[in-house]
Computed example of a mutant assay.
Amino acid sequence: MIQNLVLQNIAKHISLDENEISYFLSILKEKKYPKKSMILKEGEICKTINFVQSGILRAFYRDQEGKESTIMFAISDWWITDMACFINQQPAILNIETIEDSLVFFLQKEDLDELYIKIPKFERFFRIIMQNAYIREQLRVIQNLSLSAEQRYYIFLEKYPQVAKQVTQKQIASYLGITPEFLSMIRANKNKQAFS
Rank of each mutant, 00 (worst) to 15 (best):
Y160V: 09
S54G: 05
A74T: 08
E114F: 11
L115M: 06
F182L: 11
E137W: 12
L107S: 04
L112R: 02
E18W: 10
A84H: 12
K159F: 12
Q138H: 12
A74H: 04
T179M: 00
M130L: 13
Q169C: 08
A84L: 13
P180Q: 10
E65C: 13
P91C: 02
Q162A: 13
P180H: 07
E100N: 12
R127P: 08
A92F: 06
L7T: 01
S76F: 03
V167T: 08
F122M: 07
I2R: 06
E137T: 15
N19E: 08
T98M: 08
I117C: 01
I119S: 04
R136M: 12
L40R: 06
S174F: 00
P120R: 02
N144S: 13
I117L: 06
W78F: 11
E150F: 03
F51W: 06
L176D: 03
R152L: 10
Q3A: 15
T179E: 08
F125A: 02
Q131H: 11
Y33V: 04
I93T: 12
I56P: 05
L107M: 05
E137I: 14
I178F: 02
A188H: 04
I2M: 12
L115Y: 01
N88A: 12
Q171K: 09
G55Q: 05
Q166R: 02
Y175G: 07
T70M: 08
L94H: 09
L115Q: 04
Q151L: 01
Y23F: 06
I186R: 04
K41D: 10
G66T: 10
L103E: 08
I178L: 04
K47C: 14
Q171D: 08
Q151N: 13
N132D: 02
K121L: 10
Y160I: 09
K47G: 05
K29E: 15
K190A: 15
Y33I: 00
Q89H: 15
E18I: 13
V6A: 00
A11G: 14
N50W: 03
Q169M: 01
C46V: 13
L103Q: 10
Q90M: 15
T168R: 08
S76V: 11
I27C: 00
L5V: 09
H13V: 14
H13W: 09
Q108W: 10
A194I: 15
E110I: 12
K109C: 14
Q171G: 09
T179Y: 05
